[in-house]
């Protein structure tokens, strides 16, 4: 076990987060097809979430166990949402 670990530059991460937030808002006004815009907006949101998780929650420096505790529920939520599609989206 190491007794020292490096910490990221928290302010730099914040700058990235703000830039991405502005990019997300601007992207929602782009004159592209709606699906493309939505895709773009959520890629930006996922990137922001990843930045917060990896650097502010120090996930980058954690063990595989903690990764599993994050990834498993995310996978389950995605599975649940997709299995709801037949009844709630394709029902008409």
């Amino acid at each position: 076990m190491t007794t020292e670990r490096a910490r990221p530059n928290y302010v730099a991460v914040w700058v990235w987060l703000v830039v991405l937030m502005i990019a997300g808002v601007l992207a929602s006004y782009l004159p592209f097809a709606k699906s493309a815009v939505i895709f773009l907006v959520f890629v930006v949101a996922a990137t922001k979430a990843l930045l917060v998780a990896l650097y502010y929650m120090h996930l980058r420096f954690e063990s595989g166990l903690i990764y599993a505790m994050v990834i498993v529920p995310v996978v389950l939520v995605i599975a649940l949402t997709f299995l709801l599609f037949p009844d709630l989206v394709f029902h008409h």
Partner: peptide, 29 residues
Amino acid sequence: GKVGVWWFLASEVMLFGGLIGSFIVSRLG
């Protein structure tokens, strides 16, 4: 404490995930 908080957050992911998933499918439908 860290293990405990992460487990708690895992259950919170499921809570908000269930709500957000319901919203997404309701909205698309």
